[in-house]
Amino acid sequence: MATGGRRGAAAAPLLVAVAALLLGAAGHLYPGEVCPGMDIRNNLTRLHELENCSVIEGHLQILLMFKTRPEDFRDLSFPKLIMITDYLLLFRVYGLESLKDLFPNLTVIRGSRLFFNYALVIFEMVHLKELGLYNLMNITRGSVRIEKNNELCYLATIDWSRILDSVEDNYIVLNKDDNEECGDICPGTAKGKTNCPATVINGQFVERCWTHSHCQKVCPTICKSHGCTAEGLCCHSECLGNCSQPDDPTKCVACRNFYLDGRCVETCPPPYYHFQDWRCVNFSFCQDLHHKCKNSRRQGCHQYVIHNNKCIPECPSGYTMNSSNLLCTPCLGPCPKVCHLLEGEKTIDSVTSAQELRGCTVINGSLIINIRGGNNLAAELEANLGLIEEISGYLKIRRSYALVSLSFFRKLRLIRGETLEIGNYSFYALDNQNLRQLWDWSKHNLTITQGKLFFHYNPKLCLSEIHKMEEVSGTKGRQERNDIALKTNGDQASCENELLKFSYIRTSFDKI
């Protein structure tokens, strides 16, 4: 039985969820670079991206490699990797027998973001014989899940209580170790020597080791999670996991709180800001991140802002960003909400898709409305799209047979046209069989910064309504002859009103 693990408890099935942008060198404390989270699957090609990484700022997932063999891993080693800020997950990587050479110096898994409450997941690794993470000293947050690894031993010899604050939620089941077939031998045991430290858990006094050649490092209890030197002297209180010299914040392997210019500090002093819960960055760093993602459509890219001495992905609820200094300031009234469309555009074809934009005031991208039916549609669209004030790209209304009016965009005031449909149009209306009105132009103002209007096959939309939009939106004169079809717009509506004058002759039985 794995020490510190839980057996036999019912657990939810383990679901495996399925960018080499360097964020800056980590400095003297770390020998390499800070790398983003990685999802490495199918083959070993991307694994080489770990070569210079000291910190993975995010998670590391290595999974679904069915053609790899043990010899493929023999020359692979990433000794610079010290810390993973989120979680480490391995799933069905064939041929991998140990992690001792792959990650010989991995010391800390912070667990800032977890995989279903777990910071370390080893699942269905069919050839893994031992973990071998002999320098792993601290899992700051989260638990361990090690399950269905039929060859995995050296679990009962690990004292997880020396690595985690609590072992109650560890789930370590259905491994070879369960069948008591392992016969784990710690260093020196074969020669009758006791080389590794022994600890007591559940009444068992057991030597602690990761492999037959690597003991588990056990520091004096007084050192807590700070770690200790090879001689057993406690590291500085700002260290986490390990250090090369005692009581020196510049000799830590990793930091308990924050890293700044080669030393570990309790908090980031001005003019620095907390970033990702582990390091200090200056304003320029946060500003660069903001600008890199301002026009990016890459998933996970955030326009970072500053709030409460932190550089964070977005302002919290009730705050909006001051564009001059990136500071989050309290909103006066309802907060603006910028919604970034991942692929640059979004099609609204149902109430469900409209709900995804609920509360958005600025759309960074283009909207395509293609709704053919739905219950209580006008009210639903207004509830979900009615706060949109600005669209950076274009607005396209296409084959939306259920629409009679666009009044559900009740606050839309600006279409920038930074991206144009077919390279020309910022407003595009095609084949809307029941569209009769755009907006009530006596109450609604709309500016279209650039781009043209396109109207074709809107049989109940009168040309007068379209011409009014040209005047109000500032697009009059931009359109070419064929942009607004004269014969297919309003051709099934009563669009022309003329005053009919009647004269009559009164007659009676005795007068003409």
Score class of each variant (00 low, 15 high):
D247H: 15
L29A: 10
V218E: 09
R110V: 04
G241V: 04
V206A: 05
V200Y: 13
G300K: 15
I139A: 03
F205I: 08
I139Q: 01
R145E: 02
D86L: 00
P330Y: 11
F115P: 02
L64V: 09
N322Y: 06
I222E: 14
A198I: 12
I163D: 01
I62V: 13
C264V: 00
L289A: 09
L327K: 15
H59S: 08
A190E: 04
C293Q: 01
N135D: 07
K310N: 08
T189E: 13
I158A: 10
K193N: 11
R69H: 07
C182R: 06
C301Q: 04
S213I: 12
N42G: 04
G241Y: 02
K224H: 08
K100T: 06
V144R: 01
S225T: 11
C215E: 14
P271V: 03
Y171S: 13
S98G: 02
V265G: 01
C268W: 00
E97A: 09
H274T: 14
D169F: 10
C235M: 00
I163Q: 03
K251W: 02
T189R: 07
C35M: 00
D184I: 05
C196F: 12
E57S: 09
N295P: 03
S225W: 15
G318H: 07
I139L: 07
G183K: 10
Q245R: 13
N135Y: 02
H307G: 02
S98L: 01
G227D: 11
I185F: 02
L155Y: 12
D177W: 11
Y154K: 08
P249L: 01
C153K: 14
S213K: 15
C268T: 00
L47E: 01
V144T: 05
I84C: 01
K67V: 14
S213W: 04
L136M: 02
E314Y: 04
W210R: 06
G300Y: 04
C35K: 00
D277N: 15
K191A: 05
V206I: 04
P79T: 06
E130W: 12
Q204L: 08
C315Q: 01
L120Q: 00
D39V: 05
C219Y: 03
M137W: 12
P70N: 02
D288T: 05
C153Q: 09
C182L: 04
Y134A: 07
P269S: 03
E97Y: 08
D86S: 03
L81M: 09
N202A: 07
L89T: 05
C228S: 03
R141E: 12
T68A: 12
H302C: 05
L81K: 00
N309Y: 12
A190T: 11
V108S: 10
L327P: 01
W210M: 14
D39Q: 08
T250R: 02
L50G: 02
N295G: 13
H274S: 15
K251R: 13
I185W: 15
N52W: 03
G203P: 06
C335A: 07
M83K: 03
N175G: 10
C335K: 01
S166M: 15
E97Q: 14
R263F: 00
D247I: 02
R92V: 02
Y319P: 01
N257T: 07
F283W: 08
L174S: 14
H48W: 07
V93H: 12
F116I: 11
C196G: 14
L90Y: 01
H48K: 10
C280T: 00
E168A: 11
K176E: 09
F275A: 03
I172S: 13
G300E: 06
K217P: 14
G318P: 01
G132S: 13
I172E: 07
G58Q: 00
L128Q: 05
N175M: 06
K129L: 04
N105F: 03
S296L: 11
L76K: 15
Q245S: 09
C186I: 12
R41W: 09
T229V: 06
P336G: 05
R298M: 03
L155M: 12
H212S: 04
L96I: 08
R263P: 00
N282D: 02
S284W: 13
E124T: 02
K100I: 05
L102F: 12
